[in-house]
């Protein structure tokens, strides 16, 4: 790993100032993706602004019908937080399934979103739940946030401060795990929101995306049977040593049904 300059501010305004003045620096959250990529020299920033000492960026709260998770809250805390459990239980289950316990003690929701790994879990929750990503500059709707492979709408130096999740009527996350990394080979987050059903798919393409055909059918009837005969096209699906595009497309069909069943607390369906 190349050496770099390093700052560890304790206040958000100080971090914002550093980030504004040094756009060639990278922001360090939990570091569970960034540090390995520095070690492999995939990333070689001039400096790092470590956000880990900013207490104002940690914690969970409820405001009206919204669940708010601050950017530097680690997965392990989201997984057991009683406000999250009461508000959006599926988020607890998602957080409890990221990586391994040691990674969950360190990795954060803000870091996961800013990194926008195509197989990360959180992006699917943010997109399906129609969350808002609040930064030190503005608010970004989930539909406008994820632009492509490791690419987001964040400007250089922009810092995610919190994520605001409107509470859904029902929601579930079903992930088919890549057996070694525990990233999603295909993950489906289904949410019945106030503005209709939203289905977000992660792991399958270059970025998280909405499964609009499934949404249309589920808006008519929110039940797994509504998806019968719907087949995802393998066009735009990732193909790698872990799974072919065809396999991933098929996983989406199967897992979306399972996620809907899970959101409705239906017993697991028999393979047909």
């Amino acid at each position: 790993m190349h050496d770099f300059l390093y700052q560890r501010p304790t206040q958000l305004p100080e971090a914002s100032q550093w980030a504004k003045e040094h756009v060639d620096y990278k922001l360090l959250a939990g570091g569970m993706s960034l540090i390995p990529s520095l070690k492999m020299r995939l990333s070689q920033p001039a400096g790092l602004i470590d956000l880990s000492a900013i207490d104002a960026l940690k914690g969970v709260r409820i405001e009206g019908d919204e669940l708010i998770i601050k950017a530097m809250t680690p997965h392990a805390e989201v997984a057991i937080d009683k406000n999250v459990r009461q508000g959006i239980r599926a988020l607890c289950e998602l957080a409890a399934g990221i990586g391994d316990p040691l990674v969950r003690n360190r990795g954060t929701i803000g870091g996961s979103l800013a990194n926008a790994d195509p197989a990360a879990c959180y992006p699917s929750a943010v997109l399906a739940l129609n969350a808002t990503i609040k930064t030190n500059q503005r608010e970004i709707a989930a539909d406008q946030f994820f632009l492509g492979l490791f690419e987001t709408a964040l400007h250089p130096g922009e810092i995610i401060t919190e994520i605001r999740f409107p509470k859904p009527k029902a929601a579930a996350y079903w992930k088919f795990r890549q057996p070694a990394s525990r990233f999603s080979l295909v993950g489906v987050f289904v949410a019945q929101t106030n503005t209709g059903v939203r289905v977000a798919i992660t792991g399958a393409a270059d970025t998280v995306f909405r499964h609009t055909e499934a949404e249309q059918r589920l808006n008519v009837q929110f039940h797994p049977s509504a998806l019968k005969g719907l087949f995802m096209s393998e066009k735009n699906m990732n193909s790698d040593i872990h799974a072919s595009a065809q396999y991933r497309a098929h996983c989406i069909d199967v897992i979306t049904e399972r996620a809907v069943a899970m959101a409705l607390n239906l017993p697991p369906q028999k393979e047909s």
Binding site: Y6, R8, L28, G31, M32, I35, P36, L48, D50, S52, A53, A76, P101, L102, V103, N105, R106
Partner: peptide
Amino acid sequence: GKGVKSCAVLALSCQ
């Protein structure tokens, strides 16, 4: 008090 992988944590982050 929490388990972490010390090969993925900067020493300076542990100030």
